[in-house]
């Protein structure tokens, strides 16, 4: 029993269970199979952004430019696809990821090499990237559904084994992220610079390069998210995904990533994504509740961070206690 209580994800699991029970009573239509499918399909975008955000936050920085990278790659791949007929999907996906990485390099350079505060740096880069997207799409024209053929859309909406492709890709990314976090040295380095920049520097880690790499990977994921977004909705615009970065950050915090860096759990992140998705759909199903959406999101974030801090402090206390007992 103690083991269960100690599980850091307990709060999230409880939250999910509570929401599901509430949905059972208040909005039973929640449980339609098609609901699940579309609900998950629509919210995969948030999952990508949350994973990308997690990588940056654990390095001690923050990234407000994820959605702008998404919009950029979505529009860019659409335009490429239109103008170069016959371009294979695999090439497009690769290009999307590369474009995302490139944008990530920009943010990473400004944050880690020019020592600009990450919030301001990524704010600036997001303006710039959105601006480029605006001009690239001919002064803000929308990418229309008939630009996309079945081939393109199948990247996201095709089905393998009954699940949409986009859901498979999301699962793939989550698994890869989990492996990366737990087994790769690069990830450990990122956690190190997140928890204490100076110590990491002294320990011989190239803080700048590691931070840059974090942004690059995050950018790549956002780039992939972009082409998925375009394929899923069959439309995109320079202002797509505006405001999603806040939800992504909130999801990461909920999932246990410390905002100052140095901590991240993929299991927490996955549960947080689930919880946020359920909350979003739940709110949209209850009539008259949409007006509370923002306020609720604010409360959730505050509660999550407080819980985060509380648990960190209490686990410290517990560890000290245990050490004391052992002596």
């Amino acid at each position: 029993m103690k083991h269960v209580l100690k599980n850091r994800n307990l709060g999230l699991i409880v939250g999910i269970v509570v929401m599901l029970i509430a949905a059972w009573f208040l909005t039973p239509q929640f449980y339609g199979m098609s609901t699940f499918a579309s609900m998950i399909r629509n919210n995969c975008v948030y999952a990508f952004l949350a994973v990308a955000e997690m990588l940056v936050i654990m390095s001690g920085a923050i990234d407000l430019s994820g959605p702008s990278v998404l919009a950029f790659t979505a529009c860019a791949t659409t335009l490429l696809y239109r103008n170069i007929p016959g371009i294979p999907m695999s090439v497009l996906i690769l290009l999307a990821i590369l474009m995302g990485v490139f944008c990530g390099v920009l943010s990473g350079l400004v944050t880690f090499y020019f020592d600009v505060q990450p919030m301001i740096a990524t704010l600036g880069t997001s303006y710039i990237i959105r601006g480029i997207t605006y001009f690239m799409t001919g002064k803000g024209q929308q990418m229309l559904p008939n630009y996309y053929t079945e081939e393109f859309k199948r990247i996201a909406t095709g089905k393998i084994l009954g699940l949409y492709n986009i859901i498979w890709v999301t699962i793939l990314i989550l698994i890869l992220a989990g492996i990366f976090l737990n087994y790769r040295q690069q990830a450990r380095r990122m956690l190190a610079i997140g928890s204490n920049k100076e110590s990491a520097q002294v320990a011989g880690i190239n803080v700048r390069l590691t931070g840059l790499k974090g942004y690059m990977i995050a950018g790549g994921i956002c780039g992939l998210a972009g082409i998925m977004y375009a394929a899923n909705y069959s439309m995109c615009l320079y202002s797509s995904a505006e405001g999603f970065e806040m939800t992504a950050i909130a999801t990461c915090i909920l999932g246990g990533a410390a905002i100052t860096g140095g901590e991240a759990r993929i299991s927490g992140n996955i549960l947080a994504i689930l919880l946020m998705t359920i909350i979003t759909v739940f709110i949209s199903m209850l009539p008259g509740l949409s007006i509370w959406a923002d306020a609720i999101q604010g409360i959730i974030i505050i509660a999550a961070v407080l819980l985060n801090i509380f648990m960190a402090k209490s686990s410290e206390r517990n560890e000290l206690k245990e050490r004391g007992q052992r002596m």
Binding site: I62, M119, M246, I249, A250, I253, I259, T260, I291, W292, A293, D294, A295, I296, Q297, G298, I299, I301, I302, V305, L306, I309
Partner: peptide
């Protein structure tokens, strides 16, 4: 409470504006 300013004020921003909206 020791919360980092960035995330706190993002959250309170949503909260305050949300309250006015309601």
């Amino acid at each position: 409470m020791g919360m980092p300013a960035v995330i706190t004020t993002i959250a309170t921003s949503l909260l305050y504006r949300g309250m006015v909206r309601v």
